[in-house]
Lab assay of single mutants.
Amino acid sequence: KLETFPLDVLVNTAAEDLPRGVDPSRKENHLSDEDFKAVFGMTRSAFANLPLWKQQNLKKEKGLF
């Protein structure tokens, strides 16, 4: 399991300012399950079932792209 970080560490943070080991294209993977659901309004599995373009739009909207 990946290390999780608080939302404010990941949202609207440039790649070079992210904690070590965080993939800038997969910031959402480093949210706790609770934060993930609070941000996206759905579970990880529901998010994973969305088309890629919709996932990317949601990530942009939430500052996690």
Results as ranks from 00 to 15, higher is better:
Ala48Asn: 12
Asn57Ile: 12
Glu28Ile: 05
Lys62Leu: 10
Arg20Ala: 15
Phe36Glu: 00
His30Cys: 06
Leu7Ile: 13
Leu7Tyr: 15
Glu3Ile: 13
Thr13Leu: 10
Ser32Lys: 06
Arg44Phe: 05
Gln56Val: 14
Asn12Glu: 07
Ala48Gly: 11
Pro24Asp: 06
Glu61Met: 12
Leu64Phe: 09
Asp23Gln: 04
Ala48Leu: 10
Asp33Met: 05
Phe65Lys: 07
Glu3Phe: 08
Val9Tyr: 15
Leu52Asp: 11
Ala15Thr: 14
Asp8Thr: 10
Phe36Cys: 00
Val11Tyr: 06
Pro51Trp: 01
Phe36Pro: 00
Thr13Glu: 06
Met42Leu: 06
Ser45Ala: 14
Phe40Cys: 01
Asn12Asp: 09
Phe36Ile: 01
Leu31Phe: 02
Trp53Phe: 09
Glu16Gly: 11
Ala46Cys: 11
Arg26Ser: 09
Leu58His: 03
Asn12Lys: 08
Thr4His: 10
Asp33Glu: 13
Leu64Arg: 02
Phe40Leu: 07
Lys54Ile: 13
Pro6Ser: 07
Pro19Thr: 02
Ser32Trp: 01
Ala46Met: 13
Val22Leu: 05
Ala14Trp: 06
Pro19Val: 02
Thr13Trp: 10
Pro19Phe: 01
Lys1Leu: 13
His30Leu: 05
Thr43Tyr: 05
Pro51Val: 03
Ser25Pro: 02
Lys59Thr: 03
His30Met: 04
Trp53Glu: 12
Gly21Val: 07
Leu58Ile: 09
Lys1Cys: 15
Pro19Gly: 04
Gln55Arg: 09
Gly63Thr: 01
His30Glu: 03
Met42Ser: 01
Leu64Trp: 08
Lys59Cys: 06
Val22Asp: 03
Gly21Asn: 08
Arg44Cys: 02
Pro19Tyr: 02
Glu16Lys: 12
Leu64Tyr: 06
Asp8Arg: 08
Gln56Phe: 11
Arg26Val: 06
Asn49Ile: 12
Glu28Arg: 01
Pro19Met: 03
Lys62Thr: 08
Thr43Asn: 11
Arg26Thr: 08
Lys1Met: 13
Leu7Gln: 04
Ala46Tyr: 09
Ala38Pro: 00
Val39Gly: 00
Gly41Cys: 10
Asn12Leu: 08
Gln55Ala: 05
Val22Pro: 03
Ser25Trp: 11
Ser25Asn: 14
Val39Tyr: 05
Ser32Asp: 07
Arg44Gln: 06
Glu61Trp: 08
Thr4Phe: 15
Glu3Tyr: 07
Leu18Met: 06
Lys60Met: 12
Trp53Gln: 09
